[in-house]
Simulated scan of single mutants.
Amino acid sequence: MTRTPARFALVLCLTGLGALVAGCAQPQVGRDMSDPYEVQNRSVLSAVIASDTRTLRPVSQAYGTHVPAPARTGLSNVASNLALPAMVVNDILQVKLGDAVQNTARFVVNTTLGLGGLFDPAGQGGLTAEHTDFGETLHVWGFGEGAYLVAPGIGPTTTRDFVGKAVDMVLDPLGYVITAPASYATTGVKLTERFDDRYTYASTIDEAFYKSADPYVVVRDAYLQKRRYELGMSDAPDSGTYDIYEDLYE
């Protein structure tokens, strides 16, 4: 009975935290970004690359090699479909009602006619997803980008988007509907999507992680260019850097 009020209170606390950290760590005048945690970020990225070497990279290669492409596509479709309800909530918070209607219609069509999102009849009919998240909601509400971070389990982000990701988990309507043990299956589907993304973008990610002179700078610049483009803060980034985090950490 107290689950919803407790989650609402958590959303308020996290939003307040987002306002604090974003407000206290704005990019300095004359700089393109704020990176006051570079030492810590480099340490986390080193751990991320080590984990990629030991686990994510070989598992994703095995997944991409042994799981047929239609099955991988279907599982990715399901994962994408599961993300839509949280996007609808953010559309409403941003007062983008047209996007909210479109994402809702896409979810309904693919959940029913698409067998839980396994297939994409909505996309074939022109109902594409309008991607958004609570980090974008905070941007629309006027919160600054804050400092650049590399967070364990998340990857490159900013203080604003780090809080946004936490709030998205709380706001997701499916979190109230799909409970254990069914929620274990949804978690598994989302994990397979990460394997598929790592396999799909293997050459670009390998180039950044293992062949660049300074992986930290490459990853940071690629992420910030992509994110700022998504939020309408800059022009489209170079294609060579854009693909690095196209889907890997989304």
Score class of each variant (00 low, 15 high):
R3G: 07
T4R: 12
P5H: 10
P5K: 09
A6F: 13
F8M: 15
L14G: 00
G23C: 06
G23A: 08
P27S: 10
V29F: 10
V29D: 14
V29Y: 10
M33K: 10
S34V: 03
S34A: 15
S34W: 01
P36Y: 10
Y37T: 03
V39G: 10
Q40A: 15
S46D: 15
A50Q: 11
S51P: 03
S51E: 14
S51W: 12
D52N: 12
D52C: 05
L56H: 11
V59M: 14
A62K: 07
H66E: 09
V67N: 00
P68I: 12
T73E: 11
S76Y: 01
V78T: 09
L82G: 01
L84M: 13
A86W: 00
V88C: 06
D91M: 01
I92M: 05
L93G: 02
G98D: 15
G98R: 14
D99C: 13
D99P: 05
Q102A: 13
N103Y: 07
N103S: 11
T104E: 06
A105V: 07
R106N: 07
R106Q: 10
F107S: 01
V108Y: 04
N110G: 06
T111K: 05
G114D: 04
G114S: 08
L115N: 08
L118K: 05
F119N: 06
G123D: 06
G125D: 09
L127K: 02
T128H: 14
T128N: 15
A129F: 00
E130F: 10
H131I: 05
D133A: 03
F134D: 00
L138P: 02
H139S: 15
F143S: 06
F143L: 15
E145L: 02
G146I: 01
A147Q: 06
L149R: 02
P152N: 02
I154Y: 07
T158E: 00
T158V: 02
D161G: 01
D161L: 02
V170C: 11
L171N: 02
P181C: 08
S183Y: 03
A185W: 07
T186W: 08
E193T: 09
E193M: 12
D196Y: 08
T200D: 07
T200Y: 04
A202G: 05
I205T: 01
A208F: 03
S212Q: 04
S212G: 05
A213C: 07
A213S: 13
D214N: 11
P215D: 12
Y216Q: 04
R220M: 06
Q225P: 01
K226D: 13
R227A: 05
G232M: 06
D238K: 10
S239I: 05
E246A: 15
